[in-house]
Amino acid sequence: NITNLCPFDEVFNATRFASVYAWNRKRISNCVADYSVLYNFAPFFAFKCYGVSPTKLNDLCFTNVYADSFVIRGNEVSQIAPGQTGNIADYNYKLPDDFTGCVIAWNSNKLDSKVGGNYNYLYRLFRKSNLKPFERDISTEIYQAGNKPCNGVAGFNCYFPLRSYGFRPTYGVGHQPYRVVVLSFELLHAPATVCGPKKST
């Protein structure tokens, strides 16, 4: 009989979020998941679920829940969905086509923008091939755009693969920082350890 609540607040209220190319993952297990707390949290810009209804989450049990978190621009949030393409979905964070879970995003301009620009948040701009679902690539190898080998030196046709967002408070909404948490639900042939409040007695 599990009684402790799942530590969703640790994920959602973290002081610093990860850059999207180096997205953070927390495994959540052996706890009671009260999703209504999240669902009623006012400032969400997006709360979209795939393969599961957000209002039914509290009735369900899962083997594991993974909480992935990172920061992207407002106009990139739409790429955090199954079957998407674009710089983020291709080179930074890719969801599987059969994704079961929820994508939760909110504007973090007050936290993550600075006058003069916040350059701490990076994304991958160049990559030889697209990421596989949930693949994480933190390499900083110089990207070779031409035929000539770069030998690890940036220059003509040789690019550092990461780019900084440089968030400023005055940017338009599409270019403002958004914090994103992706909850993915794993249902294995194993005992369920993460259940909603109704199922955990």
Rank of each mutant, 00 (worst) to 15 (best):
A22N: 13
V173L: 14
R124A: 04
F17S: 04
S36F: 04
F12C: 04
D137F: 01
Y121L: 13
F156D: 15
S108M: 04
N30E: 07
V20Y: 01
R124Y: 03
F70V: 01
P149V: 11
S69N: 02
E186N: 14
D98G: 07
N58F: 05
S53D: 15
C195V: 10
C61M: 08
T15M: 02
Y143T: 09
N64M: 09
V103C: 04
N109H: 13
V180E: 00
N107S: 07
T201Q: 14
C158T: 06
F99N: 00
N92R: 01
S129R: 14
L131C: 04
F99G: 00
E186H: 10
L111S: 10
S36P: 04
R127G: 06
P7G: 09
Y178A: 09
Y39F: 15
K26H: 07
T55D: 15
S184P: 00
Y91Q: 05
F41T: 09
I88T: 03
Y66W: 11
L57D: 04
K94S: 06
L188Y: 14
F12D: 02
R163G: 12
Y165A: 04
Y21M: 05
V71L: 05
V20R: 02
D137H: 01
N92K: 02
E135V: 05
V32M: 09
I80H: 01
C158Y: 05
T193H: 11
V37C: 11
F12L: 08
K198H: 13
P177R: 01
V115I: 13
K148T: 13
N4Y: 08
G51S: 04
W106R: 02
L162K: 02
G101I: 01
G155F: 06
N130T: 13
P133C: 04
D59Y: 09
Q79K: 05
L162T: 05
V173H: 11
E135W: 04
I28T: 03
L131I: 13
T140N: 12
I88F: 02
K148E: 15
T55W: 11
D59A: 08
Y39C: 08
Y171K: 12
F41G: 08
G146T: 10
S108T: 08
S139T: 13
P82Y: 00
R16L: 08
F156A: 15
G51N: 14
L188V: 14
T201N: 13
P161F: 02
F45W: 15
N40A: 11
C49D: 00
F99V: 00
V32H: 10
L125A: 15
V181I: 05
S200A: 14
D112K: 00
N157Q: 12
F156S: 15
A22P: 02
Q176A: 06
P177A: 08
N130L: 11
F47H: 06
N120I: 07
Y119N: 14
F17T: 02
G51R: 10
E141I: 07
Y50P: 00
N92V: 02
G152N: 13
F47G: 04
N40G: 08
N4D: 11
I28S: 01
A81L: 03
Y93G: 01
C150L: 05
K48I: 05
A190D: 13
W106P: 00
E141H: 11
Y165F: 05
K148C: 09
T140E: 12
V37R: 14
H189T: 12
Y178S: 04
P161G: 06
D98L: 05
T201Y: 13
L111M: 13
L57M: 07
N118C: 06
Y165H: 06
E135Q: 10
V153Q: 14
H189Q: 13
V180R: 00
Y121T: 05
V65N: 01
Q176R: 03
K114M: 12
N118E: 12
N118G: 10
T201F: 14
N147A: 13
